[in-house]
Nucleic acid binder design. Structure first.
Lengths: 208, 208
DNA sequence: TATCTTATTTACCTACCGGTAAGTATAAAC
DNA sequence: GTTTATACTTACCGGTAGGTAAATAAGATA
């Protein structure tokens, strides 16, 4: 009993995928609360109960959309934390990978940002904060390595970490804007280079 | 005709003010679409038609809340652009003032950020972008001055501007988070100092 | 062929949404 | 003392929200 029997037509769970795509589009355009189940199912070309069949409810399809991309982030963080490169290169690699992941999930990212930094819009809670902190943590570890090895000047770890994350965040958010982004991944690496070259040790004394 | 006659009880337009306060609270907690007029008027302790009396509709009270704080920003930008100080001090003064304005209007700011960077939530359009660009412009002008006068190394103007605005943005957004902010205005000035000291001209040659 | 499971539809529910019509109390103006 | 404008209330509107009960179509199993 409880065997694996599936009618399974030509496309497997086609409706499910179409619902996910449509929901992502509409959540991205209007936000969680302003998106109606009716709009979503209409855009997906299916009937309303289908959404309640595949996902428990409106919250269910939202939760699925918001949690999936973070599985990739976890992997990126793990990999970069243990790479054997200079601290500078590890930060650049980490941020570059995050940038790519972000671009691949731009619509989901827009929704995440607006809910993490803004009002929850009636959407169910999701621990975006945890991932934000993890990124900061890994960056902080790399910075600490860089200072220990003498690759960086002995500045305050947190301050440098903030400057770096600030640059990353700024570039990521620029991609969310309505207008054409004025900074991209090239701008990010330039900004990082500026910060790094700024804090690189030099022979001459520096004020303060 | 069209004379100035006012019944004017003890408190003038008390309901109006209470509506604005309640609307700000509730928009801030739930976002635009998820906030109902009923909730707002209940929190304000007035009846529903009062909102439609003082403001045309839900969009009207939202628009009033979102546009008022920018009048102060305009003044800050104008003042700082024409101050006779070092570029470094002007940037710090500008960002410090913006930080204070931001903190004084934290609830409105949270709503603005979520709508500017995220989905519009069904809220009427407001040109947040214009103000964002103005801040960037003024910062860019100060940076250009600093490079011209030799106060800064001859780096790319945009890149340095991005690094600075990134630090500002990062600190501002930190204030929006659910948790206790890990960076405040002190952290901001530290980060700015790090970037400035990094780009300050030095006697020794620098790689790249 | 009858049965079971999965996938999908039609028709409907209640609750709440933004908005308003119509009336009223109050106090200044004439 | 009647008028007039302001400030405010009660009662209601049509529409739409999220969600579901119940029937059904179709392939797999027996």
């Amino acid at each position: 009993m409880a065997k694996n029997k599936r009618p399974v037509k030509s496309e497997e769970h086609a409706a499910r995928g179409r619902l996910l795509g449509a929901a992502l589009d509409i959540f991205n355009e209007r936000g969680y609360a302003a998106s109606s189940v009716r709009e979503i199912v209409k855009a997906a070309g299916v009937t309303k109960p289908m959404l309640y069949y595949y996902f428990r409810n409106k919250e269910g399809i939202y939760t699925e959309l918001m949690t999936k991309p973070f599985e990739v982030l976890e992997k990126i963080l793990e990999e970069t934390a243990h790479e054997k490169l200079s601290a500078r290169k590890r930060v650049i690699r980490l941020f570059d990978r995050i940038f790519l992941l972000f671009m691949k999930n731009l619509k989901a990212a827009r929704l995440m940002y607006s809910i993490y930094y803004g009002p929850p819009q009636g959407a169910p809670f999701i621990d975006f904060e945890g991932y934000h902190l993890k990124i900061r943590e890994v960056t902080g570890l790399i910075v600490k390595d860089g200072i220990k090895s003498g690759e960086f000047r002995a500045v305050n770890v947190d301050t440098l970490t903030w400057a770096l994350i600030g640059a990353l965040n700024f570039v990521l958010e620029e991609q969310l804007c309505q207008h054409t982004p004025m900074v991209d991944d090239k701008g990010l690496s330039d900004t990082l280079a500026l910060i790094f070259d700024g804090v690189a040790p030099s022979k001459s004394k520096r004020k303060r």
